[in-house]
Design a protein around this nucleic acid. Structure first.
Lengths: 315, 315
DNA sequence: CTGTTAGCGCTTTCAA
DNA sequence: TTGAAAGCGCTAACAG
């Protein structure tokens, strides 16, 4: 790391005024090509790196977006973050990422830090019990994922569609005995909404609903399986791949190869290990991209509060 | 987002000079307690947030560390990042995270961006074929994970120890027919080093080595299994949990419940699905913490280039 | 097209 | 103990 060069050093070295250097940096069109070339050459040779801090302070924009997710090791969230990263990086932004660990308090702390850092915008992954208020005060500078709110833009997963997709697949195969394993309805999205979707599908197809809910873990699903299945059970729709793993594992032990299982998450592992399964992809990656695009458009003033729903697809 | 308040506004509101406000912000001891109290009150009531950009520019440090990982959805890396985040956040730093996607070129681009941002330090996750040179020029402002270099501090995984742990476990159980499934030795760490460790263990225990290497995917391991096993095979050590999944799956199909399988990664899923397995934890999370601690100590000048090796443990 | 001149919000002498 | 003033590195009028 060489000595810190400033715009003034470059100006001197190139024999121009510092504003000309600045113009080159900001791609101002009104610079004579030769002058630009000369300045660029000096910049290249000297290894000068403009200070973002100074630019940020002057221009007001740091070209940074904050991302608050619940856990870095949540496969759904890190897929979405990959999508976000790709888009914002393309647009010249960088990301500062923080983990809320499902704590509303931490989320708010993070939000405060991000604000202090003059981030241009924020993308927040919702979780049950998260306090959306602080985010709402950011208005058009924020986008939330997987959470309901009118005040800021959002990208949601099509929780009903996800389950319908699985149900319809089974119904098309003339299965009628379709059970469901989900998570506790106290979880709004993965819990309640998916369960309700299951019930609605049953209603519509005149299927007798049969379900259990529990924790979001394979063990939980594994244990619920016995309570759930009948001799005539044909398929089990699960609210997530983790649950599907647990269910499929138990079915394997019971030699119930006749029962099909579906999950949510598009883990390739599920169908690799258990042939009798498939998984619905809620579109995490695309949702990430969408939310980032939304945010960037809003930051440039081209877009107002918008609510998107990511479509699911069949793996 | 309310109107941007500056240090001057606070000064006026509190009826003091702006330098006094600055002193309060920087915890300068020479401020009369009453004055400090008054200023703090105004800050609290007005919801004033000092601009990090300005502070960074003035003070030189942005209190940011850059993290370059290969893929956000790599379980090993995101566990490590969680560890990093925890440590640096504690120390008042924030993180800007970028994905190299195993491209040396992208890594260098990212490095340039981070430098432009005046980050205080950088943590880089190595990968085979990564160009460590650019990182090395950062000297004491960088720490690399899982890569060999003398020029900057590093935290490595104990690739040999990981395999030894698994081998010894089997040897203690009086198994002698222990095979190995790994990845191509062109990958230095997960490939070559683990394979060599396997060979060394065999040598030492007078075991006939028997192994195959391929891609880092369950499919690859699944296919290699048939080539590898004999009627008397007792155990298979795998270079990763992903491989172990593939192997265990194939063994299950072949009804070879007599063969034990070990993996690396501490995925709870592996032993949940396949009872005859266990996994070695290379200590990703702790390695993350260690690297962050190293970096922070170096930044504060308390430590020089250091090389750490993360110890593995039995799940 | 280009140089000069003000600041951006903050920290840090330097006097008072 | 405090205020005034001088920049940090950069961008953006404003004149040439």
């Amino acid at each position: 790391m060489t000595q810190k060069l400033t715009i003034l050093d470059i100006a001197k070295l190139a024999g121009v005024g510092k504003s000309t250097v600045s113009r080159v940096l900001t791609n101002d069109p009104k610079v004579k090509p030769e002058t630009r070339e000369k300045v660029e050459q000096v910049i290249r040779e000297s290894g000068y790196v403009p200070s973002k801090s100074a630019q940020a302070m002057r221009g007001g924009s740091a070209k940074v977006v904050g991302i608050i997710l619940s856990r870095l090791d949540s496969p759904s969230e890190n897929k979405a973050v990959s999508g976000i990263l790709e888009v914002i990086y393309q647009a010249g932004y960088d990301a500062v990422i923080m983990e809320s660990q499902f704590s509303a308090e931490k989320t708010n702390e993070h939000l405060a830090v991000l604000q202090k850092r003059n981030v241009d915008g924020v993308i927040v992954f919702g979780f049950s019990g998260c306090d959306i208020q602080a985010v709402e005060s950011l208005e058009h500078k924020a986008v939330v994922i997987a959470v309901d709110t009118d005040r800021v833009s959002s990208v949601g997963y099509d929780n009903a569609g996800i389950i319908e997709l699985a149900m319809n697949r089974f119904i098309e195969q003339d299965k009628r005995q379709i059970s469901y394993v989900g998570v506790d309805p106290s979880d709004k999205t993965t819990g309640l909404m998916r369960l309700n979707a299951y019930k609605a599908c049953c209603e519509q197809a005149s299927i007798e609903p049969r379900y259990r809910t529990g924790q979001l873990s394979h063990e939980s699903a594994y244990q619920l399986t016995d309570e759930l299945i009948h001799s005539d059970t044909q398929a089990i729709v699960c609210a997530s791949d983790t649950l599907a793993m647990g269910v499929a594992k138990r079915l394997q032990e019971l030699n119930r190869t006749d029962i099909q299982v579906s999950g949510v998450g598009a883990t390739d592992l599920l169908s690799f290990i258990f042939p009798n399964t498939f998984s619905i992809d809620p579109g995490y990656y695309q949702a990430g991209r969408a939310s980032a695009n939304l945010l960037i458009q809003q930051l440039s003033g081209q877009q107002t509060i918008t609510h998107l729903t990511q479509q699911a697809s069949l793996q």
